[in-house]
Structures are given as C-alpha cells and as structure tokens.
Design a protein around this nucleic acid. Sequence first.
DNA 1: ATAATGTTTAGACAAACGTCTAAATACAAT
DNA 2: ATTGTATTTAGACGTTTGTCTAAACATTAT
Lengths: 97, 97
Amino acid sequence: MIKMLQDTLKALSDPTRRKILELLKQHPMSAGDIGTHFAMTGATLSHHLSVLKNAGLVLDEKKGTFIYYEINTSVMEDMLNWVTGILGEGNEKDKKD
Amino acid sequence: MIKMLQDTLKALSDPTRRKILELLKQHPMSAGDIGTHFAMTGATLSHHLSVLKNAGLVLDEKKGTFIYYEINTSVMEDMLNWVTGILGEGNEKDKKD
DNA sequence: ATAATGTTTAGACAAACGTCTAAATACAAT
DNA sequence: ATTGTATTTAGACGTTTGTCTAAACATTAT
C-alpha cells in the first residue's frame, strides 16, 4: 500500500498529530505514555495514532502488553520534494528584481 | 493577522488547492483562467482561492474586471522549519547503527 | 479461569469541509 | 441606465473529521 503525499499532509494538518510526532522525535513511546501529554481519551489518541500509522508517519511494535510507537520520517520526502518544487521551479524571468 | 503553520498545512491538505499552487507557480493567473483547469464551479474555486489567500499562500491583485492571483511562497518557511526540525533533531544516540 | 492493565474498535454526535445553485457585487462597454 | 462578463457571497447538502462513551481484544499475573 503506497503512502501518498495526500495522506502525509492530511495527517500533518492536525495539531495533536504534529505534537505526537514531536514527542516521538525524542524517542519511541507507548500509547499510554503519549496519552499522558494530552487531555483527551485514549480512544481518541488511538484514532490519531492510526491516522499517523496509516500515513506511514509512525511504525508500531508490540512489546508484551504495550505497543511502542516510533516516528518514521522517510515518508516526508515526497512532501519535501513537493514543497521545494514549488519553491524552486518558479518563473526564472523574475530573478532580475 | 499572523499566518500559522496550521493554516498552511490545512490549506495544503487539499489536492485542488495544491494543483492551484502548481499552476500559479508558473505565472499569475486570473480566477477564470484557473477555472479552465478544473471541472468544478467557479464558486467552489473561489472558495479554495479564499482558503489559500487566508493562509497567505496566494496574493490577489484586482485589474479591471479580473482578479489576478499570484503564489506567495514565503509562508512555507514555517512549514519547512517544522519538517526539518522533525527530520534533524532526532535522537543522536542512534547514529552509531 | 479470573482479574487487572494497555490498547483498539464500534457507534454516536457535533463541527468542519468540499461542493453545488442562486443571488449579489464590481467593473466595462454600450 | 442597461447589458454583459468576472468573481464572490449566501445558503444548503452530504461527507469527513475529531471527539466521546462503552464494549471488545490482548497480554500478564494471580
């Protein structure tokens, strides 16, 4: 199942999910650990994690009762490419200003 | 009115709006010109343009009856910073693998 | 087997979103 | 002033999204 730019941006367009990634940037964390940083139910967090997982932005690994989530940045390449494409391939005629 | 990362990502998370930006990347265009590239009503396009405008991703200039839209890439800086922050400031301990 | 803990799934609900039609506004030309 | 063209605004409608509660599933310990 290929992860699309669309999925990445949709996943990233929610502030809770961005904050989750900022947490996971430091080190992998269980769903419960992540939950301590938010004022929402575990069910809601689980939903956000599944969106991130579906976009390929996190990977999960079951360890006994716990499920550890880990950030996966490789998916952001397409996004970076799109943005730098927009930034770089502009109208070169305007360079003289 | 400050444009936030949130607005940028929300605006960018719709494929029509991304395609609009790809068009405007080439050169400024009137709303009508943009419309020729899509199979949706002008009203819907106008809505998308207003989202982009509100996010600071496009600027508009009225020229007689026409309104010319122009891409504004400077707003993407925050986004770039966020992404490179996520990409770069990982756990350095893992570098030895 | 039972209980306890960690996490997800199912179902519901309000708010936000993308789209449409119809009406309104703005400007140019007659 | 009227008509015509370009665009936006208003209002409606179905879909998606973020959230919740309640129930289910999975694993470990008793």
